[in-house]
Write a protein that binds this DNA or RNA. Sequence first.
DNA 1: AGTTGGTGGTGACACGTTTCAATAGGTGAC
DNA 2: GTCACCTATTGAAACGTGTCACCACCAACT
Lengths: 336, 336
Amino acid sequence: MSETVSVIDVAGRAGVSLGTVSNVLNRPERVAPATRARVLRAIEELGFVRNEAARQLRAGRSRTIGLVVLDIGNPFFTDLAAGVEASAQRSGLSVVLCNSNDDTSRERHHLSMLQEQRAYGVLITPVANKTPAIEILRRAGTPVVLVDRGSNRQQCSVAVHDRVGGELAVTHLLERGHRRIGFVGGPVSIKQVSERLAGARSALRAAGRAESALTVIETPRLDVASGRSTGERILAIGKRLRPTAVFCANDLLALGLLQDMTRRRLSVPSDLAIVGYDDIEFAGAAAVPLTSVRQPRSQLGHAAMELLLEEVVDPEQHRHRQVVFEPELIVRDSTA
Amino acid sequence: MSETVSVIDVAGRAGVSLGTVSNVLNRPERVAPATRARVLRAIEELGFVRNEAARQLRAGRSRTIGLVVLDIGNPFFTDLAAGVEASAQRSGLSVVLCNSNDDTSRERHHLSMLQEQRAYGVLITPVANKTPAIEILRRAGTPVVLVDRGSNRQQCSVAVHDRVGGELAVTHLLERGHRRIGFVGGPVSIKQVSERLAGARSALRAAGRAESALTVIETPRLDVASGRSTGERILAIGKRLRPTAVFCANDLLALGLLQDMTRRRLSVPSDLAIVGYDDIEFAGAAAVPLTSVRQPRSQLGHAAMELLLEEVVDPEQHRHRQVVFEPELIVRDSTA
DNA sequence: AGTTGGTGGTGACACGTTTCAATAGGTGAC
DNA sequence: GTCACCTATTGAAACGTGTCACCACCAACT
């Protein structure tokens, strides 16, 4: 069964040296056509398959890039992953998708795994602001690109301007005549959350409103379940202080909240207007189609891969870059 | 920067041989506590990280398992993946998630990549019925488990009884008094689709209805967009023949169709009742909460990993098994 | 003192590939 | 016929780990 076929076996069968077999595989133009054909036939006949581990060992690095995301259950990240994978495949790289699940210890685990695998590069949406493991990776020579997260000049990053997104959302709600607005999201330790919140605040300021007009409702996670349990907390607020509109830090929260409102037979947007974030495919398909801040998801993935490849190709010349995309507000029924 | 630290460097620093370092890493109990501590300190000081490629080369197989799914945009598969990953992590394995996207050539590409990587095992939901690449993999000694797909005695598989699922869905619609029923799904070359359709037919037979009562509307893919464009095709059917209820082969189709009906200001379930399949999280959160056939998603992943590990541990003794879970109908408003 | 047994540690080899300096063989110029 | 040159091919070394047969040492027993 498992009799392994190596280049040596191929060489034997084709009557050449193993060096020639390797040349056929890696620089076919250096090998005479007749020999090349003979070698290829031997490969075919023996069912030879390159051993990636040996190649990696020799090369000192693997041809795998790691993509570490916060929540694989969030379509935002799977769309991002699809973009990354498409780009990677074009360069003959494979992608291992890691789910940190908002947990720094799982994140650490994944990163050390990637380091053991001598990953070609790492794309990551970090859980916390400081992630020492990233520094270690980079020092070991592995390029790292931050995804969906801005950064200082010390590293490459690809992000969407979260503060602007927050401004777009809340400005829209103010224009619709809402005066008491809620912000749903958390934990605020996640940079995306705090930035979107900052955007919301700045929109209020710009409109000459007091920041107290913003009720912040912090959630433990950014998922549908957290959104679902937010309805109760909002309704617990006295009618006079209760927000008439909320801006959710992502679409999962918004969908959960929307579901809860529907179950309580409350109307969206009359009883509560809702704005989401990410504009995942399900946002438009929701009970009440969701107004949401759209992010260019697969473009993010492509751009990240581009930065990564730049750095791999010429680490010396490379200057870290920070790519920032602009978000776009998609207005639908949930704020009509 | 990239000065690589190997066991030899560690051995030098700790004043032992490289064999001892290896023992500290793999069979610590064989090494005297004092020596062990010295080696561990050297590892710490030098920042040594095992080279996975070298380990793999030596071991002849990697510690990575491949999971090949049909559509990474379908939450059914990401939930499945989460289950697989949890199981894998417990065994110290990592998972590379591959998206075949219903495309046999991409599937082939992924499988050959996995073969080059000498994958520890492969879990796959194959695109087509016959997949020669799987046979090749297995012959090379890589265990393969079919996921979400039954199989003959020749290989391990983990599935949910799709025919029963189809029966559940359509029986439910018949009980609700629907007489003309539609089936939305495709391509039928996908086994899950044809099985669910067969279940639908068998439910009709069991109820003593003619199979002509079932209108089959084939879609190019199993995604939201395909569902969205199905509304028009259903409405094009003359009122007398038009189904009053449809069973969709998965929730993405159902959500797309639901969205389209809502946009057309038609009512679900009065104008058209809808049953989905998979019971993904977004099904309950939809415009009209969706009746759906639930599959134990992460359990599928766990069971698949279990079968895989069984086969790896003792390939000689191993007897292929076919695990089949039973689906469950979750009734919600879309058929009320 | 010699034998036995056990513990802790050694060092050479193998895994399969890529790379590169060295070589063989052939061609054309003088 | 010799030499230089070019192309096609060779063979050995290296990548970093795990394994295993072997050795050194010590304690205990005869």
